[in-house]
């Protein structure tokens, strides 16, 4: 069976982001970009399923500008068989991404789609659930463990207060949480090989989708800063401050 993995290119999680002074967004010029960390985990899971002989083909897809080719090259180096760029330079919101992915999935007919649980730029945590709704498939978000046996997926999810296990017959949408696996690094020889492989390319229009944003971002601003605190010199001073100044104990 085929699996599709959706990868988003985002500002690297180590970068301290800067809000643009005109309030239109976050500075991305000359900023290090990477694959969304949760998507690395989703991709790793797909590659492991292939190595286990459960999956025959891993197709990685990303939506965005030409610049997103770099994450697709990384995906090839890590073990994706085919990679596809759905190219657009409009501001992508989760519903548009899910709508494009739906059309892509209908074209490719995978039995499993893996996504990250959230993109660390918009922190939306929406796309996988929306894709599941649009396709009328089962969904298992925040996956901690995934097992596929025959026509069934058993997914353990991270929930508030513990873990929950669901079972669904395929096809299913799974979104990866942090502890599903530890992604491998691409090796240098594989990175070199990946450079020679082709990146397929589509336009949203080829899929019959208009990806225009539906929500309007009016302003992006810095969060309020906390007033500076103090350094106390001893546990005794800490207790005194918490009792008499902050009055929280």
């Amino acid at each position: 069976m085929k699996v599709v993995v959706a990868l988003k290119r985002v500002i690297d999680y180590n970068v301290k982001i800067r809000v643009k002074t005109d309030g239109t967004g976050v500075e991305t010029a000359n900023v290090k970009m990477s694959m969304n960390p949760f998507d690395e985990i989703a991709l790793e899971e797909a590659v492991r399923l292939k190595e286990a002989g459960i999956v025959s083909e891993v197709i990685a897809v990303t939506l965005g500008t030409q610049a997103c080719q770099d994450v697709l090259r990384t995906a090839l180096a890590v073990g994706a068989d085919r990679v596809v760029l759905i190219e657009t330079d409009v501001e992508l919101q989760p519903l548009a991404v899910a709508t494009c992915l739906k059309a892509f999935v209908q074209k490719e007919q995978p039995r499993l789609v893996l996504l990250g649980k959230q993109a660390i730029d918009d922190d939306a945590n929406q796309t996988g659930q929306m894709l599941a709704a649009l396709l009328g498939w089962a969904q298992a978000t925040n996956a901690f463990k995934l097992e596929i046996a025959g026509d069934h997926a058993t997914v353990t999810r991270e929930i508030d207060g513990g873990l929950e296990t669901l079972e669904a017959s395929l096809p299913v949408i799974v979104t990866a949480d942090l502890r599903l696996n530890t992604p491998r690094y691409a090796t240098l020889p594989n990175i070199m090989k990946a450079k020679k492989k082709t990146i397929e390319s589509l336009l949203p229009a080829d899929l019959g989708v208009d990806p225009s944003p539906r929500l309007k971002t009016l302003l992006v601003s810095d969060p309020p800063v906390r007033k500076p605190g103090i350094v106390v010199n001893s546990v005794t001073e800490l207790v005194e401050k918490l009792r008499n100044e902050a009055r929280v104990i």
Binding site: I17, D122, R214, S221
Partner: peptide
């Protein structure tokens, strides 16, 4: 957005 390092005012 961005782990709370920015706030977005969004209109629907």
């Amino acid at each position: 957005i961005y782990a709370g390092n920015a706030l977005a005012k969004v209109q629907t």
